[in-house]
Write a protein that binds this DNA or RNA. Structure first.
Length: 493
RNA sequence: CGGGGUGUAGCGCAGUCCGGUUAGCGCACCUGGUUUGGGACCAGGGGGUCGAAGGUUCGAAUCCUUUCACCCCGACCA
């Protein structure tokens, strides 16, 4: 089973297959019996939990609170905001009945036709509508603002085609929904949360991202502006890893949410929403992992250090356990998770391979030879470099290496992205380079028609109009019309 | 929703064209033993309504009809 993993490669033609097999073999998730849905297994969920914890702390630190809103949304809510319904109507799961009964013809259980709902309920594809319907009751005065709420939830989008973690019919995410008294404050909030996401991606996931604004074509249904962080996967394709929307007054108007300002005037509330999902798991995998399995940044690894004892008899195992106990205690006191793997039904070689597959950042092996010499064998997952190190002072060495892995994973990913990000001025060169998996900075005339044409002809889309970077004007590579600045094109997941 | 493909043990598959003993193999699992510094070996063992329904036949995993499910490639999307 595991030997097959060595045949996996990251060549563009079978990158998806590599990804899929890795997800399954590393024990992160598996396909479920339900169409397009997946089971997140304990090891995969442990990584997601780490992400949740960090993000949740970041949200709290920026003044947000958690709350929870219903899974089911009355159909009529969805249609209040015209663009929103347009965007989501095609992928909604709908609840139509509330009762089953035994089939009179003996065909098992059937839907009771008498239990049809007067108004159908939508399983939330996102919660703007139910939340704004609620906020209407919460907001009267400017003193009630801002409302800074986040919810951890599951949502369902009936996608035609699914991929584990990247696009499943049901997925886990957080969605922040804020209400503000002024346009400026809401815009600042949307940008602030984009920065939070970028901080998380780069400093915890060790995944460099491009921050930017979406073009009209790629904008969230119902938003005035959609901010995004875009990451490059190892095959050169882009993955939208988080979004933050400035919703203007669209939802306030749709749900009639007004407040009285200081001048005793009625005004519509300004809104934002922002989210990241279990898609980040896919991003993490496709940013760092290799043919030996997962490579996890220490800050998100469920296990930081795995210790494999090598022994023949129980007495040797006991001696090893005794030797490593102070080290284990010390590492744990630094908040690290340490696994001393004394399972006797697996041989050391199997354990080595297994911890590599699972992406454990540091692995120690210790046997009779080491007990004698006062050493251990230390292997770091990112480079797979193996060295014999003295046991004394090992805890500091491990802390240093974990830190170094975190940094070098980021640097490696950043270097790859920089090498594969190019500036292009002609459409012919664009077509050639996009085929090879590049991020391309090119001039665009700003029209949806040109973007559609590029997408049609090359499968590339505008990932974002970057915030910062080169903003000198030029001419569109396709039409030759004036362009305000270069934008980022790529193929994407 | 179009175009391909696959359903046989927990997982991965062979067998189907050309019907014929008790449906087979690898991994996993159980028992015993030997092993343990890179995915152990030997011996024994358990596990199957061959996706479902109907039909043809002395006889169907295999042929025919119907049907269901899933996967891949597109269009759609976090």
């Amino acid at each position: 089973m595991a030997k097959e993993l060595k045949n996996l490669t990251k060549r563009a033609d079978n990158y998806s297959q590599w990804y899929n097999e890795l997800v399954i073999k590393a024990d992160l998730a598996e396909q479920s019996a339900v169409r397009g849905c997946m089971v997140i297994k304990p090891y995969g969920y442990a990584i997601w939990e780490k992400m949740q914890r960090v993000l949740d702390d970041m949200f709290k630190a920026t003044g947000h609170q958690n709350a929870y809103f219903p899974l089911l949304i009355p159909k009529s809510f969805l249609s209040r905001e015209a663009e929103h319904v347009e965007g989501f109507a095609k992928e909604c799961a709908v609840v139509t009945h509330h009762r089953l009964k035994n089939d009179e013809n003996g065909g098992g259980v059937v839907v009771d036709p008498d239990a049809r709902l007067e108004e159908e309920l939508i399983i939330r594809p996102t919660s703007e509508t139910i939340i704004w319907n609620t906020y209407k009751n919460w907001i009267n005065s400017y003193r009630d603002l801002p409302i800074l709420v986040n919810q951890w939830a599951n949502v369902m989008r009936w996608e035609m085609r699914t991929r584990m973690f990247l696009r499943t019919a049901e997925f886990l995410w957080q969605e922040g929904h804020t209400a503000h008294a002024t346009r400026e404050e809401a815009e600042a909030e949307a940008r602030k949360m984009l920065e939070v996401y970028a901080d998380f991606a780069e400093n915890y996931m060790a995944m460099p991202v491009v921050k930017g604004v979406k073009s009209a074509n790629e904008r969230f249904a119902g938003a005035l502006d959609t901010y995004t962080i875009e990451a490059m996967m190892q095959d050169g394709k882009a993955l939208q890893s988080g979004t933050s929307h400035f919703l203007g007054q669209n939802f306030a108007k749709a749900f009639d949410v007004k407040f009285i300002n200081k001048n005793n005037e009625q005004e519509y509330v300004w809104a934002t929403s922002w989210g990241v999902s279990t898609r980040l798991m896919g991003a993490l995998i496709m940013t760092h992992s290799d043919d030996n399995g997962l490579v996890l940044p220490p800050k998100l690894a469920p296990i930081h250090v795995a210790i494999v004892p090598i022994y023949k008899e129980k007495a040797q195992l006991d001696a090893i356990a005794e030797r490593v106990k102070p080290l284990v205690d010390d590492l744990r006191s630094h908040g690290l998770t340490v696994k001393f793997d004394d399972a006797d039904n697996r041989r050391p070689g199997f354990k080595f391979a297994d911890y590599e597959l699972k992406g454990v950042p540091v692995r120690l092996a210790i046997g009779a030879r080491d007990l004698e010499n006062g050493t251990v064998e230390l292997v770091r997952r990112d480079t797979l470099e193996k060295e014999i190190v003295p046991f004394a002072g090992l805890e500091d060495e491990i802390l240093r290496i974990l830190d170094d892995i975190q940094k070098s994973l980021f640097e490696k990913a950043l270097k790859r992205r920089e090498e594969r990000t190019i500036t292009v001025d002609t459409y012919d060169e664009f077509k050639e380079k996009i085929e090879q998996g590049y991020f391309i900075l090119a001039h665009w005339d700003g029209t949806p028609e040109t973007e559609d044409r590029v997408k049609e002809e090359t499968k590339a889309t505008i990932r974002c109009i970057p915030l910062g970077g080169d903003d000198t004007p030029g001419v569109c590579m396709v039409t030759g019309k004036p362009s305000a600045r270069r934008v980022l094109f790529a193929r994407n997941y």
